[in-house]
C-alpha cells in the first residue's frame, strides 16, 4: 500500500469521509461512559463536594488545548518544509479545535474556581499561561484568515506556529516566576496528591473521547478546507454537488 497516495488532497478526501464515523461514534460512546463514571461512580470529594466533578471536562480539555497546539505546529512545519498542502490544511483544521478546547478549559476552570476558590478568576500561573495559549491560537487563526493567498497563509502560519512553540516554555516559565514573585492566590489545582481510581478512570476515558472527537471534527473541517481550496478542480465540484 502506498501511503504517499493519501498525501494528495484528492485521494485523502474520500478516505477522510470514510474515517469520520470510526472516530465520531466511539467518541460519543466514550463521552457517555466517561460522564457516567464521572458523575455516578466517582465518589464525592470530601473537601470540594460535587463541584470538583467539572475536572472531568476541565482537565482533558486543558490537555487537548496544549497537545493540539504542538500538533498544529508540527503539521504546519511539515507542510512548510516539504511543501505538503495537506499537512498545512491539517494545521488550519486543528487550530480551531485547539482554540475551542483552550477556551473551554478556561471557562470550565473559572466555573470551577467560583465554588472552590470563591472567585471566577485568579492570576494563577496555569490560568494565565492557558490564557496566553488562547492568544497564540487567536494569532495563528487571524493571521491565516487575513491572507488571501493560501500558500502564503500556510507558510506564514507555519513560521508563527514554530515561533509560538519556542516561546511556549519561556512564557510558561516566566508566568510561573511572575506568579511566585507576586505571591498570588496560588491554590494547587489538585490539592491532594492522590485521586481515587474512578476519578482517574473517568478523566482518562473523557480524554480518549476528546481525542477521538478532535480527530473526527478535524477530519470534517479538513474535508471542507479541501473542497474550498480545490474548488477549481473537477472532482471537488462533483463532491460538492
Amino acid at each position: 500500500m502506498n501511503w504517499y497516495k493519501y498525501a494528495s488532497p484528492t485521494n485523502f478526501y474520500p478516505l477522510a469521509g470514510k474515517m469520520i464515523p470510526w472516530f465520531a461514534i466511539p467518541s460519543a460512546i466514550l463521552f457517555v461512559l466517561g460522564l457516567y463514571v464521572g458523575f455516578f461512580v466517582a465518589p464525592t470529594d470530601f473537601q470540594q463536594g460535587d463541584a470538583y466533578r467539572i475536572i472531568f471536562i476541565h482537565v482533558p480539555s486543558a490537555w487537548m488545548g496544549m497537545f493540539l497546539y504542538l500538533l498544529m505546529a508540527f503539521y504546519a512545519a511539515i507542510g512548510w518544509a516539504f511543501n505538503a498542502r495537506l499537512s498545512s490544511m491539517m494545521a488550519s483544521a486543528i487550530s480551531i479545535t485547539g482554540a475551542m478546547f483552550t477556551a473551554l478549559s478556561l471557562v470550565t476552570g473559572s466555573l470551577w474556581g467560583k465554588p472552590t476558590w470563591g472567585t471566577y478568576w485568579v492570576w494563577d500561573a496555569r490560568l494565565t499561561s492557558t490564557l496566553i495559549l488562547l492568544f497564540l491560537y487567536i494569532g495563528f487563526i487571524s493571521l491565516q484568515a487575513s491572507i488571501d493567498d493560501r500558500s502564503r497563509a500556510d507558510r506564514a502560519g507555519a513560521v508563527l506556529a514554530i515561533v509560538g512553540v519556542i516561546n511556549v516554555p519561556i512564557i510558561y516559565f516566566s508566568v510561573q516566576w511572575w506568579n511566585t514573585l507576586h505571591q498570588g492566590a496560588s491554590i494547587r489545582l489538585l490539592g491532594k496528591p492522590t485521586i481515587a481510581p474512578p476519578m482517574m478512570a473517568a478523566m482518562l476515558i473523557i480524554l480518549a473521547a476528546c481525542w477521538l472527537y478532535s480527530i473526527a471534527v478535524v477530519l470534517v473541517r479538513l474535508r471542507q478546507i479541501i473542497v474550498e481550496r480545490e474548488q477549481t478542480a473537477a472532482w471537488a465540484a462533483e463532491a460538492r454537488a
Binding site: F135, G139, S142, L143, S146, G164, N167, F173, S174
Partner: peptide, 23 residues
C-alpha cells in the same frame, strides 16, 4: 515581516506580537 502588505496589518500585528512580548 509576516503581516507585510496585508489589509488591517497594524491590528493583526498587535494580535500576533503582544502575546510573544509577555516574557
Amino acid at each position: 515581516a509576516l503581516t507585510l502588505g496585508l489589509r488591517g496589518g497594524g491590528l493583526l500585528l498587535s494580535i500576533l506580537v503582544l502575546p510573544l512580548y509577555i516574557p
